[in-house]
């Protein structure tokens, strides 16, 4: 009983503090080393990692399509990473994710001001253009799509994952 009360209190305080600080607990910080952890955590599972940003025009168009893709493909681990340069807009990022139907996917936000280093850990050749999608197969093969992904290409890749499974 006490535990339950504590739990409710915790939830209440967390929600209150979350809204007071404008923070969204659903967004995970993406920091040094996060990329390797993401790869480890999803090893052996087909994983789609989508890099986007709140000020990126093409991202606004693509995000809802990706939301539908995630809904249609529960067998694919969908991860989004807000990769804008200033990581102080979790509320705006969360709002766009919610509207795109991506509330329940694993969502990160760049949380290190030294973005060159974050990007270098992911792909040394990446200069920061977004949107960008990385398709990670069960065997770890990474296919990178620069710019908006065609949903048909994602469907094709998804079907290949089922086939290889």
């Amino acid at each position: 009983m006490k535990r339950r009360i504590a739990g409710i209190l915790c939830l209440g305080i967390l929600l209150a503090s979350g809204s007071a600080l404008g923070a969204q607990p659903a967004l995970k910080p993406f920091e040094r080393g996060t990329w390797q952890r993401v790869l480890r955590d999803h090893a052996g599972r087909p994983t789609l990692v989508h890099f986007w940003g709140v000020t990126c025009g093409p991202c606004k168009v693509e995000l809802p399509l990706l939301g539908q893709f995630a809904k249609d493909h529960p067998d694919i681990d969908v991860i989004t990473i807000s990769a804008d340069l200033v990581p102080n807009l979790p509320a705006a990022a969360q709002s766009m994710l919610d509207k795109a139907g991506l509330s329940s996917t694993e969502n990160f936000i760049f949380s290190d001001g030294f973005v060159e280093r974050l990007r270098f850990e992911i792909d040394p050749a990446w200069q920061g253009d977004i949107p960008r999608t990385m398709l990670i197969s069960q065997n770890g093969t990474i296919t990178t799509i620069e710019g908006s992904a065609e949903i048909a290409d994602l469907e094709k890749w998804s079907a290949e994952q089922r086939f290889s499974h």
Binding site: A6, L9, C10, I13, S17, L21, A23, P29, L85, V86, P87, N88, F110, S111, D112, G113, F114, V115
Partner: peptide
């Protein structure tokens, strides 16, 4: 709980400074 919240806020501040490009 209050202590946990305070710690959380302190962590948030430190985190914010590190996360900023300024």
């Amino acid at each position: 709980l209050a202590l946990a919240c305070l710690q959380g806020a302190a962590h948030g501040q430190m985190h914010g400074q590190h996360a900023s490009e300024a």
